[in-house]
Amino acid sequence: MWDRLMSIDKRVIYLLVAIAIAVPLIKPLGLPLSTSTESETAFNAVDALKPGDILWIGADYGPSSAPELDPMAVAIFRHALKKGVKVVVYAMWQDGVQMSKNWTELVSKEVGAKEGTDWVNLGWKPNNPVTLRQMTDDLWTAAAGVDVNGTPLSNLPLMERVKKLDASSVTLIFDLSTGSPGTADYLQYVSEPKKIPMSVGVTAVSAPGAMPYVKSGQYTGILSGMRGAAEYELLSKAPGSAIKGMDAQSLGHALIILLIILGNIGYVLRKRA
């Protein structure tokens, strides 16, 4: 009897997970959400930028982490553009190009921002993080002189102000990353040596590994997974897909805890028997 609690068929578990995640996406529960200090710090870093300041967004992720990082990107990009902050987007991941093209086009259309003047997408360049490090000396050469569309940087007015990736041109870096190359490379090659403050947005599984850098003050706040994205949406008063996804996360977590409890009840009772 107790053995049964310890050996639920994995297909049953998978079915339960699918139901727990799918149902709240179709019919949201609307559970309340609070914000953490780390997310508030990251939000405040963007909020403190003045019109005309330059925010550098790193799109270092692919479609797999898009549900967690895309909502962050949308919220941060929208927040910055609405404040009159200029944005430069760069992807160290090839996939980051497609990801960033999707949200830059969507948000800039919504906000009415102009490509080349209000924002620039540099796209992906090969051999990162070496290319990123080269950008701190000579961005135009490292970027092969063109943006993601192949437009010469000399034709993009915003890039006249960004000849190098350093503190004289970029006020804040916000790297959205799911692995390597990613936040660690920005920290090592750009943020620390060039003294540019840096906030990060990472997938939930990467958050524990990034926490030491938040505690040491090397990252100005952190958005952790879908929850971090939802908190940013909440803080910027622009609810989006992350807030909608939080209920699914809630039920998913609750189900896993329930399964662990069941397994342990079986384990303890069998041991006693």
């Binding site: 559970l31 309340p32 939930a204 809630s250 977590h253 662990i260």
Partner: peptide
Amino acid sequence: LLVSAAIVMLGRAPIGEA
């Protein structure tokens, strides 16, 4: 480990807060 994992999971989702 189990108890801390459960606390973090509940704390990271609105259901824990509820």
